[in-house]
Write a protein that binds this DNA or RNA. Structure first.
Lengths: 156, 156
DNA sequence: CTTCAATTTGTATATTTATACTCTGATTTT
DNA sequence: AAAATCAGAGTATAAATATACAAATTGAAG
């Protein structure tokens, strides 16, 4: 059927470009694109597409396409929310390494800078990786606390 | 703590060797091995391990370890890229600075990333310079060892 | 040994996701 | 054209999973 495959395509596109943490939020993204279905259908679509929900090992979960479906396509970001672009965050001493969706490091780093978090001395962005240098005395915990209090909501 | 890491190890082992379709069934496998925990703990373990539940596309779901836990694929091509591009490598604490031929930083860094070396937390590339952040506890020596085992005949 | 802070876990529950059942409309068969 | 078959989707609900909170445990500092 025509409608279904259109929808499947759009779902893949959305998953590639956004950090999506639940079927409900994916659902509302789809609505914005004028695809109106229920959560049940979405669940079936995701099963069909072999999409998996994986952990960033830190603050939550997000959907991901199977590896042979997620090519390194660096596309223009419509990321407004810092958290939405972040795929993983780990620390080594005073340096944090953030992994983002491909091509999104730049915009996420910019957004991070704008937050003016006291813990952050500076950032450097590559394509899908950001280094965050912490100020002396600041810890990973300080940052995550401050971070979560500044970032009001997740997804839409 | 001792118990936890034992358990995590066993969980990885079980996931590698069985098709596991729910936390409950994983739980009972663990019980047989004398690990007694609740579903909640298991959920947290799986999050920590970044285990994901994936669909086989038709009959159901099963747990799977993240790809960098499973056998590495064809990385031979990347190895050549890495070898060819590196001009110098020096460390300051947990940060390595790699000098490359002009304009090559990007491709070398990409190749480095693909190697998925356990010592490397992340990289960011400029034009002819790459920063490499080491994981906590890892040293320059660990990296060069691991590096040379994957890439014979490179001086650092 | 005590105290304080950090980690780990269990309990209870909320949230999220899968699915049994049913309906609809499209397509094929007779 | 009616009957039979089938894929897709909605509804309601079951099943699975994540998490807030409190209790327990460990480790470090005095």
């Amino acid at each position: 059927m025509k409608d279904r495959s259109e929808r499947l395509k759009k779902i893949k596109e959305l998953i590639r470009s956004h950090r999506i943490e639940s079927q409900e939020s994916l659902l509302s993204l789809l609505e914005k694109e004028n695809f109106n279905v229920t959560q049940a259908t979405l669940s079936r679509d995701l099963k069909y597409l072999r999409v998996s929900k994986i952990s960033d090992g830190w603050s939550g979960y997000y959907y991901s396409l199977p590896t042979d479906e997620s090519p390194p396509k660096a596309e223009q970001g419509y990321i407004q929310d810092v958290r939405r672009g972040i795929v993983a965050l780990e620390f080594s001493y005073n340096i944090g390494v953030i992994k983002t969706l491909p091509g999104h490091a730049d915009s996420v780093a910019l957004a991070l800078d704008k937050l003016n978090l006291p813990e952050i001395l500076g950032t450097v962005a590559g394509d899908d990786t950001i280094f965050v240098i912490l100020r002396e005395g600041m810890t990973k915990e300080d940052l995550t606390t401050s971070f979560q209090s500044k970032i009001p909501e997740v997804d839409t």
